[in-house]
């Protein structure tokens, strides 16, 4: 069984900005452990010198021209924003 502890899960939750109560953490830990266990079968394969595939196609150098076009209207952009103030997206205080 893959060894993933509730501490590991809590750490990952922190990285992903998710929170769980104790019960859920235990459940998640169990589920993740099972899944990671299954995934572990990849270790049966020898992948020495096998290049990784990041893109299914071998495209290269895809670019666009440096042309400025008009941006979206601010009303459109801010429409549906949870909180707006003086044309800015408002968020709870960030301590910097």
């Amino acid at each position: 069984m893959a060894t993933i502890t509730t501490d590991d899960v809590q750490h990952v939750a922190t990285l992903a900005r998710l929170e769980f109560n104790e019960e859920d953490i235990a459940e998640f830990t169990h589920q993740l452990a099972r899944i990671l266990d299954y995934i572990g079968k990849l270790n049966e394969l020898d992948t020495t010198d096998v290049p990784p595939t990041s893109h299914p196609l071998t495209l290269r150098n895809v670019v666009k021209e440096d042309v400025a076009k008009s941006s979206y209207e601010r009303d459109v952009v801010l429409d549906g924003a949870p909180s707006v103030e003086e044309g800015y997206f408002e968020v709870p205080k960030v301590i910097e």
Binding site: V67, K69, S71, Y72, G87
Partner: peptide
Amino acid sequence: TNSKLFCNCEVKFGSAANTQTCP
């Protein structure tokens, strides 16, 4: 550059907030 790195919004300093944006 004239436009941003991945979209065509203009690179312009000093515009009113959120007027040089797109999805």
